[in-house]
């Protein structure tokens, strides 16, 4: 049984790193401004198509293209913040949920008009290596590695730079931060941008090994919710850990039962954690 379990677990874990980054974006936005970004899924999908376009049309190496995708994600996020979120940032939760959901509809609508809903894939491979029973696809290893690097950079940014410290100050107490002269709406816009950037990067990485459609982001968005709750809303490092937990569950469960039970277990776990330990397994905020 270990012959199946171990490779499946390793695959799951590698994927878990990427899930982690997607969830980190959601978690950061939640932590800084208490907004649940329902446009998260479509942005993940845009990340996928970004890599696809850069690779097939411009002929760029996907990992090089990832830098472009990240930058585009950042800009798009800042734009979304100013258009849709800024005005309702202090309104009840429902407003920001629906505002981001309308952005979701707009992106999906445009995306469907351009790409239809048929599947695409990035025809790119780095080969594989066999270690005992384990077959490692290099694209997956590279994705996990990229995820770790991105997490590291995010932490350096949040804890070592002035702007990063401003973000944490606003996350802690926006009113106090404003009194200290931190331009909160610019900080919020940037945080939103970084959150969507992370989503776009995650999408881009997934596109290097899975086929996708414009609607594919939805599944990853729901996974991000589960992960964020596992790791604690507003705790980016928790999101990475949560991603690894979810990834390994997705690796382990199919060994014992049909793959279609995976979401049942994921979501039951999700509801259970919200009820029992709403601060997440790791707790604490940004």
């Amino acid at each position: 049984m270990f012959d199946i379990l171990i490779p499946s677990l390793v695959d799951g874990l590698l994927l878990g790193f990427v899930y982690g980054i997607a969830a980190m974006g959601l978690s950061l936005i939640w932590g800084v401004m208490n907004v649940i970004n329902l446009a998260h899924g479509p942005i993940i999908a845009l990340g996928m198509f970004g890599i696809y376009l850069a690779f097939t049309i411009l002929g760029l190496n996907p990992y090089l293209a990832l830098v472009l995708v990240a930058f585009a994600g950042l800009v798009l996020g800042i734009l979304i913040y100013y258009v849709a979120v800024n005005r309702v940032i202090d309104a009840p939760h429902l407003s920001s949920l629906l505002a981001t959901f309308s952005v979701n509809m707009i992106i999906i609508g445009i995306g469907t008009a351009i790409f239809t809903v048929s599947p695409y894939n990035v025809d790119f491979t780095l080969g594989a290596v066999d270690i005992g029973p384990i077959r490692l696809l290099w694209t997956r290893v590279a994705a996990a590695l990229a995820a770790v690097i991105v997490t590291g950079l995010l932490y350096l940014f949040l804890f070592r730079t002035r702007t990063g410290k401003n973000i944490r100050a606003v996350a802690n107490n926006r009113t106090a931060a404003e009194l200290m002269g931190i331009p909160s709406s610019r900080v919020l816009a940037l945080s939103f941008g970084i959150g969507t950037m992370l989503a776009a990067i995650a999408g881009g990485l997934i596109a290097t090994f899975f086929p996708f459609t414009i609607l594919a982001g939805g599944g990853y968005e729901l996974r991000s919710f589960v992960i964020v709750v596992l790791g604690g809303l507003g705790n980016p490092l928790g999101a990475l850990v949560g991603g690894l937990i979810l990834g390994s569950l997705e690796g382990i469960i199919p060994v014992f039962m049909q793959t279609s039970w995976v979401p049942v277990i994921e979501f039951v776990l999700f509801v259970f954690i919200i009820l029992v330990r709403p601060s997440g397994l790791l707790g604490s905020r940004v």
Binding site: L222, S260, F270, V271, I274
Partner: peptide, 28 residues
């Protein structure tokens, strides 16, 4: 009696989770 203890966004998230769990369960 369980989820109405949750406030705000936590309640919203829990209801999403319940719907998704139900759909996945019925599928199986």
């Amino acid at each position: 009696s369980a989820i109405l203890r949750l406030r705000g966004a936590y309640f919203a998230l829990a209801t999403i989770g319940i719907n998704e769990a139900a759909r996945a369960f019925v599928k199986n």
